[in-house]
Nucleic acid binder design. Structure first.
Lengths: 190, 190
DNA sequence: CGGTAGGGATAGGGTTCT
DNA sequence: TAGAACCCTATCCCTACC
């Protein structure tokens, strides 16, 4: 029988992302033929690439809602979020599996956002913003709406959260911690 | 709101089994489209069929298959079959709880294995073998190893049970009680 | 034919309900 | 704790359209 199910490895996913960055979407056969990726993706077809890319996109789009839902479900009854600072504490930025970042020709992403960020007096809100951008995992970065949505659904937020976030985004963007790509924001790779 | 939980009726279960026998596992949509079953299963989705089949399998297979199945599952795509090959796979056409069958047009499947078997001087060991094949419920049949395991784990067995079983299997196969189809063995439908 | 986009089906892991 | 029913979604397959 064929493969029971061939799950995508982080390496393969990274190769795909890099391939898309290099050749663009819809160039599946081209990416497969590129010697830079052909080895890693040798067990994948052009259709597989297409499917996986679609899946990645969808995941990124709805990522925040999903996480929020899960977070809510997992919250045991009676586990109230008090006003303690921990309410807004950020779980360790999950960079572990971020290793598989689009290592496009040139630089491999890697630096922990916190590291570079800590040099710039990060507020707890900033941490949240980084978490959002990191966890959203959107290849081309996340726009403000996605970031708002993520934060809104993953934290107890004050009424004017958006404004606060917007302010911080502008700040982080202007001081170089975040890089604006087109209309999107990326964590600056140090 | 949602259905309170729609329990499977014996009719539905019978239809599902018949459908799998006719079209094979993994052909859920096909089974659902088959006019022979579509009426009975009209309130079920292809996914429901898949889930139910999984539940049936899991339940029936407690004990023996575990090892066998796990071993098989672990088998990577390219792994070769050793000499303990699948040539002895056996399929149980019907089981006792199949009585809800009359409803299916064309009356596929039907006779109780035991019935036809009893005409051929069934030994108590044979009954056990039939039980094993029946309860294993493996669509593509049960190989000797699975049968051995089933018996081993469900009965107090003498030390040389395997040999006895093997002998009976060969006997039942040669006298037509079990039918070898392709590389498989079926209980002969009377 | 070869390639891509899109719809849809299946496989498996998880979750909920009993 | 287990079993049955159901949910989620990554992966795979099929078809239409160049």
């Amino acid at each position: 029988m064929g493969a029971p199910k061939q799950k995508w490895t982080p390496e393969e996913e990274a190769a795909l992302k890099a391939g898309v960055l290099k050749h663009g979407t819809g160039k599946w056969r081209t990416i497969l033929s590129d010697t830079e990726f052909s080895l890693i993706l040798k067990s994948r077809s052009n259709v597989d690439l297409k499917d996986k890319w679609r899946n990645i996109s969808v995941t990124a789009l709805w990522g925040s809602r999903k996480k929020a839902k899960l977070a809510l479900k997992r919250t045991p009854p009676g586990t109230k979020q008090d006003d303690n600072n921990t309410a807004l504490t950020i779980v360790a930025l999950t960079n572990d599996d971020e290793r598989a970042k689009p290592t496009s020709p040139g630089g491999s992403g890697g630096g922990s956002p916190r590291t570079c960020a800590s040099k710039r007096s990060i507020t707890s809100l900033d941490k949240i913003i980084f978490e959002a951008i990191t966890n959203l995992r959107e290849l081309r970065g996340s726009d403000r709406t996605s970031i708002f949505l993520y934060i809104e659904e993953n934290f107890k937020t004050p009424p004017n959260m958006k404004r606060h976030v917007a302010v911080r985004l502008k700040h982080l963007s202007s001081n170089g911690t975040l890089v604006k790509v087109n209309t999107q924001l990326l964590i600056q790779d140090s």
